[in-house]
Design a protein around this nucleic acid. Structure first.
Length: 465
RNA sequence: GGCGUCGUGGCCAAGUGGUAAGGCAAGGGUCUGCAAAACCCUCAUCACGGGUUCGAAUCCCGUCGACGCCUCCA
């Protein structure tokens, strides 16, 4: 039984879907006004891993990830760059989609956008006004009336009275209550605007997600996800809007990932301590980022340092070592050893599932994979043939695949490979004649080319890295 | 100030009542001409102080510290 930690109840709960075998999952995407950074990658990877695991467990996942393509920051940035806000947003949507693809994140079932959900947004605002949950203010804005929602604050664990103390009341706002938030914002001159019953304007940030959920998944969904920095106010407000509008419980499970930290602080655009996904991928394989995420629990802060990066790279190599072929001279294991290895495959698969069933405990699941790697390598060292390794390696492949790891070996061009083969032949000739200086020199040369060689009793093998 | 999460070996990180998984790093060994890889061995009593219990990293209280949210934010 899969159990998931639910932010709403602050407990792990059994995962029971609204419809059998179907998961409706909505994950908050990004506001597209700038390059996405590895913190965004973390969130995308966390939910990609969750999705892959749900699919592995036999669920059909309807995965929705939105793009916020109209808001203050986009408008400001567009003004700064003197470009059209819509084309700016489009550019960063394309970039982000490309980032995700390179990170091996499965594409969402749909990627709705605020600007393409305008009808649904407006009818929702209208409905909330009719039910008394919202009001059009004198300044042209429409606000949600938080005092009307008795449950307001239930996700973030706050009470309206407590929040008022810290609330910032901006002069000129026409709110009834300082915590009321905008569903619709009146347009200022020069800003993108849509016609509405309340005059020209654009949607507030929170309403788009409520509207997109309704449009793409219906009134009730199974999982709603995002970074834990969205718990308040974004998700709190989403619940308020959606439940006030439909009169039904909105999302069953609220899942929030921890923040990626660089230098002891949350990585964020406003703090400026950023490593973009593009920068990361120019230096490292996508698997490395995934490995960093898998090494920790998704709810905890993720520490990002050079040391962590290095460890992730090395542990990835270790996983890959389990996939290497048998030695050419392998004589084969006896049946008892083969059955030990096959038992380990089974044990690892079970351990993997039980770890993942416990709120997606990836570090524990990963430990099971390393056990399998060790068993495979031991078997290989003891002369197992490819056929005998096959089952265990297939299990390793399958489970790392659930994690979304590619574990691809680097490939060079055929010219490069020919050159490498030639150098190795030359070196082996030198070794035969015990010309160690020459042979070591060639090895250094190969190292510089990024090639590592290994001399075994079956000859010399090589690989990139 | 309020709300919340957390503090496990050199680094990252599981474990939430029965005497500390895993990865990286480090040291020793097997193998090797030397390496590399793989394998074997070694390496923590869980921020601090009280308490509950036969027994606590794990529950309770306190102290110190970190981080997140309270304003845009994955």
């Amino acid at each position: 039984m899969l159990r998931i930690y639910n932010t709403l109840t602050r407990k792990k709960e059994d995962f029971i879907t609204l419809q059998p075998n179907v998961v409706k999952m909505y994950v908050c995407g990004v506001t597209v006004y700038n390059d996405a950074h590895v913190g965004h990658a973390m969130s995308a990877l966390v939910f990609d891993i969750i999705r892959r695991y749900l699919e592995y467990r036999g669920y059909k996942v309807q995965h929705v990830m939105n793009y916020t393509d109209v808001d203050d920051k986009i408008i400001n940035r567009a003004n700064q760059l003197k470009v059209d806000p819509f084309s700016l947003a489009q550019r960063y949507i394309d970039d982000y989609a490309q980032n995700l693809k390179e990170l091996n994140v499965l594409p969402a079932t749909v990627n709705p956008r605020a600007t393409q959900t305008m009808d649904e947004i407006q009818s929702m605002v209208k409905g909330l006004i009719e039910k008394g949950y919202a009001y059009a203010a004198s300044n042209g804005d429409v606000y949600f009336r938080v005092t009307k929602d008795k449950e307001y604050g239930k996700l973030s664990g706050r009470k309206l009275e407590e929040m008022q103390a810290g609330a910032r009341i901006e002069i000129g706002e026409a709110k009834e209550h300082p915590m009321d938030f905008a569903l619709w914002k009146a347009a200022k001159p020069g800003e993108p605007a849509w016609d509405s019953p309340w005059g020209k304007g654009r949607p507030g940030w929170h309403i788009e997600c409520s509207a997109m959920n309704l449009k793409e998944l219906g009134e009730q969904i199974d999982i709603h996800g995002g970074g834990n920095d969205l718990i308040f106010p974004h998700h709190e407000n989403e619940i308020a809007q959606s439940e006030s509008f439909t009169g039904k419980p909105f999302a069953r499970y609220w899942i929030h990932n921890g923040m990626l930290q660089l230098g002891g602080e949350k990585m964020s655009k406003s703090l400026g301590n950023i490593v973009t996904i593009k920068e990361f991928l120019s230096k490292h394989d996508a698997d490395v980022m995934r490995m960093i995420v898998l090494n920790g629990s998704y709810r905890a802060p993720l520490i990002y340092t050079d040391e962590v990066l290095d460890a992730a790279e090395k542990s990835l190599d270790r996983l890959k070592s389990g996939l290497r072929p048998a030695a050419p001279s392998a004589k084969g294991l006896n049946a008892d050893f083969v059955s030990v290895l096959d038992k380990q495959s089974e044990a690892t698969q079970q351990a993997f599932i039980s770890a993942m069933d416990d709120d997606f405990n990836t570090p524990l699941a990963m430990a099971a994979l390393f056990e399998l790697v060790k068993a495979i390598n031991t078997a290989r060292d003891n002369g197992a043939t490819d056929a005998q390794l096959q089952r265990a390696q297939a299990t390793l492949r399958e489970l790392t695949g659930v994690f979304g790891l590619r574990l691809a070996e680097k490939k060079g061009s055929s010219e490069q490979e020919a050159q490498i083969t030639a150098l190795i032949a030359e070196r082996n000739e030198a070794r035969k004649q015990k010309q160690w200086a020459r042979s070591d020199q060639i090895r250094d040369q190969l190292k510089e080319m990024g090639v590592t060689i290994e001399d075994t009793k079956d000859g010399t093998s090589w690989r990139w890295g």
